[in-house]
Amino acid sequence: MNVPALCLSLALVTLTGVPAVGALTSAPREGQAAIVFPPGWARGEVARATAEAGTALVRFGSLPNIAIVDLGRDDTARLREAGALLVLDPLILGGCLAGGPLSPGDV
């Protein structure tokens, strides 16, 4: 590959990839958020962690270690203290992490 083509390729990756990564990894400050807990956590552990953080659990994600919650003030810091690895905007992810609404037997 010649140098101009390599530079153009790197520029395209940087221009398209960096904003997308930033959008995925920036934590929302309010509204709903997708919370990713450590792999292997069961829904009960996720529900307990969200309750400890004082957030309102809206629904579980498609994997047991993901939850959708309503964020209030300072909830992001409390969720991280309770074990959250990532706090993401669920709309940017296209809803692929969203499960169905909660039912009494979910927790």
Results as ranks from 00 to 15, higher is better:
residue 1 M to N: 11
residue 1 M to P: 07
residue 2 N to T: 15
residue 4 P to C: 00
residue 5 A to I: 11
residue 5 A to C: 04
residue 5 A to N: 11
residue 6 L to K: 14
residue 6 L to V: 15
residue 6 L to T: 14
residue 6 L to M: 08
residue 8 L to M: 04
residue 8 L to I: 15
residue 8 L to V: 14
residue 8 L to C: 05
residue 10 L to P: 09
residue 10 L to N: 10
residue 11 A to I: 10
residue 12 L to Y: 00
residue 13 V to R: 06
residue 14 T to W: 08
residue 14 T to N: 01
residue 14 T to S: 05
residue 14 T to Q: 04
residue 15 L to Q: 01
residue 17 G to N: 03
residue 17 G to W: 04
residue 17 G to E: 00
residue 18 V to W: 13
residue 19 P to Y: 02
residue 19 P to T: 09
residue 20 A to E: 12
residue 23 A to E: 12
residue 24 L to Q: 15
residue 25 T to A: 02
residue 26 S to H: 15
residue 27 A to R: 13
residue 27 A to W: 12
residue 27 A to T: 14
residue 28 P to T: 14
residue 30 E to A: 03
residue 30 E to I: 00
residue 33 A to L: 00
residue 33 A to K: 05
residue 34 A to S: 11
residue 35 I to T: 12
residue 36 V to I: 09
residue 37 F to A: 08
residue 38 P to I: 07
residue 39 P to H: 11
residue 39 P to Q: 11
residue 39 P to I: 09
residue 40 G to L: 07
residue 41 W to D: 07
residue 42 A to C: 05
residue 42 A to W: 09
residue 43 R to A: 02
residue 44 G to S: 13
residue 44 G to A: 15
residue 45 E to I: 03
residue 47 A to R: 15
residue 47 A to W: 06
residue 47 A to M: 04
residue 50 T to K: 02
residue 50 T to Y: 02
residue 51 A to C: 03
residue 51 A to I: 07
residue 51 A to S: 14
residue 52 E to Q: 12
residue 52 E to P: 01
residue 52 E to Y: 07
residue 52 E to G: 00
residue 53 A to R: 08
residue 53 A to L: 05
residue 54 G to S: 09
residue 54 G to V: 12
residue 55 T to R: 06
residue 55 T to I: 06
residue 55 T to P: 03
residue 55 T to Q: 07
residue 56 A to F: 09
residue 58 V to Y: 07
residue 58 V to H: 10
residue 58 V to R: 14
residue 59 R to D: 03
residue 59 R to K: 08
residue 60 F to Q: 05
residue 60 F to K: 06
residue 60 F to I: 06
residue 61 G to I: 09
residue 62 S to N: 06
residue 62 S to Y: 03
residue 63 L to H: 06
residue 64 P to V: 07
residue 64 P to Q: 07
residue 66 I to M: 11
residue 66 I to N: 04
residue 67 A to M: 03
residue 67 A to N: 03
residue 67 A to L: 02
residue 67 A to S: 04
residue 70 D to G: 01
residue 71 L to N: 13
residue 72 G to C: 02
residue 72 G to I: 02
residue 73 R to C: 01
residue 75 D to T: 13
residue 76 T to Y: 02
residue 77 A to G: 00
residue 77 A to I: 10
residue 78 R to W: 10
residue 79 L to V: 09
residue 83 G to F: 02
residue 83 G to D: 04
residue 85 L to S: 02
residue 86 L to I: 08
residue 86 L to F: 13
residue 88 L to P: 03
residue 88 L to Q: 15
residue 90 P to E: 15
residue 90 P to D: 11
residue 94 G to S: 01
residue 94 G to H: 12
residue 94 G to P: 04
residue 95 G to H: 12
residue 96 C to S: 08
residue 96 C to G: 01
residue 96 C to M: 10
residue 97 L to C: 13
residue 97 L to W: 15
residue 98 A to H: 15
residue 99 G to S: 03
residue 99 G to Y: 07
residue 99 G to N: 02
residue 100 G to M: 04
residue 100 G to W: 08
residue 101 P to C: 05
residue 102 L to Q: 06
residue 103 S to R: 14
residue 103 S to K: 10
residue 103 S to N: 04
residue 104 P to F: 04
residue 105 G to N: 09
residue 105 G to C: 00
residue 106 D to Y: 08
residue 107 V to I: 10
